Amino acid sequence: MEAKKGKWDASHRSWPLPKLPWTMTQTWNDLLFAHYPIDIKVLREIVPKALPLDTYNGKGWIGIVPFHMTNIRLRGTPRVPGTDSFAELNVRTYVIINGKPGVFFFSLDAENLLAVKVAQTVYRLPYMHAEMNVSKSESFIEYKSKRRQGVDARLECRYRPTSEIFYAERGSFEEWLTERYCLYTLSKKGDPLRCDILHPQWPLQQAEAEFQVNTMLSEQGIQVEDNLPILHFSKSIEVRMWPLVSAMND
């Protein structure tokens, strides 16, 4: 098990935090990481050309990540009931600019419409409004999501951890997948932007999942090589986020 430092210690990041104040804090809960291999040529066609792909052993990866957020608030403000917790579902892949590995989102489905609008505007992320429900049944997390508009992107699954907590070893596949401390998006002009994030190292567990319905990839034109994902679980992690900055000025 290993890795217990101060909550906001940043020594495990591979580059310094921005010399700017953080803007938002969140807690992410009951995350499932479901990762699918994808051919690099196929991935290159669906990720904006301005974002260089990041690969592991010559292979691209797509992640479906359902979870629910709590304790959401802007810096210097109290939590606002009704907007401080909601479910979210991400479809993501991995890119890297100037040695800084990060996440690129194909979509982020969320059940809170106000949060969707704010995130679309402030962070330029492809948030979508969805009907969502998260509950617990015995040791399983029961998760349902159905997008309210556009394509019929849905996920119905149940998942749970199956191992003790561990922390990814340096250079491992698990570290490559999860230990990423920024997200990338594009400006109106199509230039890469970066949002730095900070959280402790991921407390990971092996996981199992049953997928009753999953059209999150097929409905978004994403063709993976294998429909059996590699699964990991994380119970909870606290996060801070920074403002968007140009990714090319480092």
Rank of each mutant, 00 (worst) to 15 (best):
K5N: 04
K5S: 13
S11P: 03
S14W: 06
L20M: 04
P21L: 02
T23E: 15
D30K: 01
D30L: 03
F33H: 01
L43F: 13
R44F: 07
R44H: 08
I46D: 09
K49G: 04
T55H: 05
Y56G: 03
N57L: 09
V65M: 15
H68L: 15
L74V: 10
R79G: 15
V80H: 07
D84R: 11
D84P: 12
E88Y: 11
V91C: 02
R92K: 02
R92G: 01
R92M: 01
I97E: 02
K100V: 02
F106Y: 12
E111I: 06
V116K: 05
L125S: 14
P126D: 09
P126H: 06
N133K: 13
V134P: 08
F140D: 14
Q149A: 13
G150Y: 13
D152G: 02
D152N: 13
D152L: 07
D152K: 02
T162E: 05
E164R: 13
S172P: 02
E179L: 04
R180P: 01
Y184H: 05
K189I: 05
L204V: 09
V213G: 04
N214W: 02
N214T: 00
L217M: 05
Q223D: 10
E225M: 12
F233Y: 15
E238F: 08
R240C: 00
S246A: 01
